[in-house]
């Protein structure tokens, strides 16, 4: 069992959904990210999604786009982020999943990336613009051979053939995009979400985490009834943006994350 499998097994035992907060690595700089990750763990995170900033984030809304711009301006690089994971993985004690676009991995070299991700202690990789049919051995097999889970996404537009393909390629968990659209809060979650998530959960062997557009404890609580994990991203990233270099940031983020964790029955 991988650390991600174990994390979901534990939350399942506790009859609750896993809390999976997201932050963009290096926003506003890597030292700050290091502190913020600690705060997320203290607040009750079960897994962490760590965003690798990219210049052209087509799946992200304005909040995460601006975070990526700040991170890149602050000098964040893939190798710097892997170093950060390497320094902190044991201290944090919970699985870390990289949330990334394909190009930085491709340019690094997929074999080399798999090697470095694994030795840094990355537990899973979720590549938002890489469908399984383009991933093949170079990516999926290379990561799995080194014990890193490969997480793929499903969306409201995915038909049953796609569900089958994504299920076959995913380990750790499957990430369900709650609605058609980019990351970020948009008020209401779609009515079909409950039905879709229930249906998918019956079909999948892996745990199902739901993300995109979940920003409040109420929404997180509602989604947790039909999912094995709930991802909250932009709402936390917004706090990082709004607080800037305010010394209260770590405390504020921890408080916000705790409310979300509690809404999931932590």
């Amino acid at each position: 069992m991988s650390p991600i499998d174990q994390a979901f097994a534990r939350t399942k035992n506790q009859k609750r959904a896993a809390f999976i907060p997201y932050l963009t690595a290096g926003d506003p700089n890597l030292e700050c990210t290091e502190e913020l990750l600690g705060a997320l763990v203290d607040a009750g995170a079960d897994l962490i999604e760590l965003g690798v900033p990219f210049s052209d984030p087509i799946a992200d809304g304005p909040v995460n786009q601006r975070a990526a711009t700040r991170a890149l301006a602050g000098g964040a690089t893939l190798s710097g982020i892997l170093d950060l994971v390497s320094r902190n993985r044991d201290r944090l004690g919970i699985p870390i999943v990289l949330f990334t676009y394909f190009n930085p991995l491709f340019v690094c070299g997929l074999g080399r990336f798999a090697e470095q991700a694994s030795s840094s202690g990355v537990d899973g990789v979720l590549c938002v613009d890489l469908p399984p049919h383009e991933a093949a051995e170079e990516y999926t097999q290379a990561l799995r051979d080194r014990g890193v889970d490969t997480i793929f996404l499903l969306a409201p537009t995915s038909d049953r053939y796609r569900v089958r393909e994504v299920a076959a390629a995913s380990t750790g968990f499957v990430y369900y995009v709650s609605r058609t659209g980019v990351t970020g809060a948009t008020g209401e979650l779609p009515k079909e979400l409950v039905r879709e998530a229930k249906k998918l959960r019956r079909r999948l062997e892996q745990p199902l985490a739901v993300g995109f557009g979940i920003s409040t404890p109420e929404q997180a609580g509602a989604v947790s009834k039909v999912a094995d994990g709930v991802v909250v991203g932009s709402a936390l990233v917004r706090t990082v943006e709004e607080m800037g270099d305010d010394p209260e940031l770590v405390k504020r983020l921890e408080g916000q994350a705790r409310q979300l964790a509690e809404a999931l029955g932590r």
């Binding site: 613009d129 890489l130 469908p131 409201p156 537009t157 796609r162 058609t180």
Partner: peptide, 12 residues
């Protein structure tokens, strides 16, 4: 070439 897109766009 290829088709490197988010899952939501695979169907359209």
């Amino acid at each position: 070439g290829g088709r490197y897109v988010p899952e939501t766009l695979m169907a359209p």
